[in-house]
Amino acid sequence: MSMIFGVPMAVLSGQLLIGIINGAFYALLSLGLAVIFGLLKIINFAHGAMYMLGAMATVIMFDTLGVNYWVALFLAPVLVGIAGVLLEYFLLRRIAGQDHIYSLLLTFGVALIMQGILTNIYGVSGLRYAMPDVFKGGINLGFMFMPYYRAWVIVAALIVCFGTWFMIEKTKLGAYLRAGTEDSQLMQGFGINVPLLVSLTYGFGVMLAAFAGVLAAPIYSVTPVMGSHILIVVFAVVVIGGMGSIGGAIITGILMGVVEGLTKTFYPPASSAVIFLVMVVVLMIRPNGLFGKEA
């Protein structure tokens, strides 16, 4: 078997694959954060909880109603998106004029509530979600074994990421969004319903998180606390990439997944800390992040 730096090729490529998949999740989540940040100027601390809700909803809907994977892939994000719109409309909007720190704290409180309630009902040990039959098995690529589902996660995440990028950068709706980011008062003056746009943006952002949650359900352990850990990692990813661009969020997310995978291969003890170390280095060299424009 061929070796690279004393590590078998198969192990390396296996870890790389896991890295890319983790990176796909980081990309989806940081993309949602970036979209919300763009218009609302807040960091959505409930983003991890929304991701968790997406995964939990998938499992619960399957267990109670027998809703299958494909329906869940559509239904769970929509439900979570509606929850997000309600959250924006009834809570976040009330403190829109205040310091943005308050909306961060508000979403943090909401995350604690959701996580706490679900922990009481379902415990923290994790729910099982059976892999859909279509995705059982995999394909041998010669140098490694590629499970179908993992390939699907990468493809689906890339499609959604690209679609979001396209919508925001190339369509009229995206133009409104970008204009709202620049000057929402002027937009209002042009007769565009900015409050509605804000609600929908928040809803869309958390939909992305929930979509990531559905993708995660068959491969990660589904627990009420699954969102809080990944969220902090995603924060670090966002700091590394900078909030400047949608594309930057996607690229940084995948890149950091790969970095994490490589670390797991060559020096496992540092694998959970490596992204934070990268963040420290980036902060020292480029305080505004790799793709960031300004602080």
Binding site: I43, H100, L104, A236, V238, V239, M279
Partner: peptide, 25 residues
């Protein structure tokens, strides 16, 4: 020294991530 050039919510995110590093340590 690492976080001071960031403001507002960025500052919160950077300090959170740094603290997580300490936690892993």
């Amino acid at each position: 020294l690492l976080s001071i050039r960031r403001q507002g919510i960025y500052f919160a995110m950077v300090t959170l991530a740094l603290a997580q590093l300490v936690f892993f340590f």
